[in-house]
Nucleic acid binder design. Structure first.
Length: 202
DNA sequence: TAACCGATTAGCT
DNA sequence: GCTAATCGGTTAA
């Protein structure tokens, strides 16, 4: 896989992304990168940023066994169970101890599509990875992956689309801090979990 | 140990 | 567009 050291000091850069930067920056930089778990995955087309100290973030109420990876080193996975059903994947950013991360909300499926169709019980490619819960099921995201480094097995993160056109909008499904326009998407992608109503270009 | 709450989805109307 | 389903983590007692 491609591993690019960005800062020269911090070993936190992969696929041209420096994960020691803010969630807001990393969320945008992840758009257009290819993410796979055990060779199954696709191109990231939708992300959301969650920053330390904001009420909508899982790190807001402090360190717990569940959210511990959020307070760990950047470029590691944080997996949580949503609504008691869906396993969702985040990537930790900033320095260790901050509690910031980026939720991966949707992929354009590219590799391992038969496995995704089997796990999801669906054949429509738009039903495989469009939404954090669907993506988690298609890539077999599990709590065992929580805390694992994003640059090592079973994860793989590569550069795919160069200079993607990115749009931004309001985060989905949150009740706290809705004013933060921290959802990002690949402009015009048919694999978004939901459309961006007002087309705010980044 | 019991109650409450979702960073959602699927299946309706 | 609307709503039920679903269950681990958190909080309060």
């Amino acid at each position: 896989m491609s591993r690019t050291k960005v800062s020269g000091v911090l070993p936190h850069g992969w696929a041209g992304i420096d994960f020691s930067k803010s969630a807001l920056r990393v969320a945008q930089q992840l758009i257009g990168k290819q993410l796979t778990v055990s060779g199954v995955g696709g191109i990231i087309v939708e992300t959301e940023a969650y920053d330390e100290g904001e009420a909508a973030a899982h790190s807001y109420t402090g360190l717990t066994p569940r959210n511990a990876p959020l307070f760990g080193p950047p470029a590691h996975a944080y997996v949580y169970l949503s609504y008691g059903i869906h396993w969702c994947l985040n990537i930790v950013c900033r320095e260790a101890g901050h509690g910031a991360g980026v939720l991966i909300r949707a992929l354009e499926p590219t590799t391992g599509i038969p496995a995704m169709m089997r796990r999801r019980g669906a054949s429509d490619p738009h039903m495989l990875c469009s939404g954090p819960g669907r993506l988690g099921q298609a890539l077999a995201v599990s709590p065992q992956l929580s805390g694992k480094a994003i640059d090592s097995s079973p994860f793989e993160l590569k550069t795919s689309i160069t200079a993607p056109s990115i749009v931004r909008g309001r985060r989905i499904g949150i009740t706290k801090a809705p004013e933060r326009i921290w959802r990002f998407g690949l402009r015009g992608s048919p694999f978004l979990s939901r459309p961006f109503p007002t087309l705010m270009k980044v």
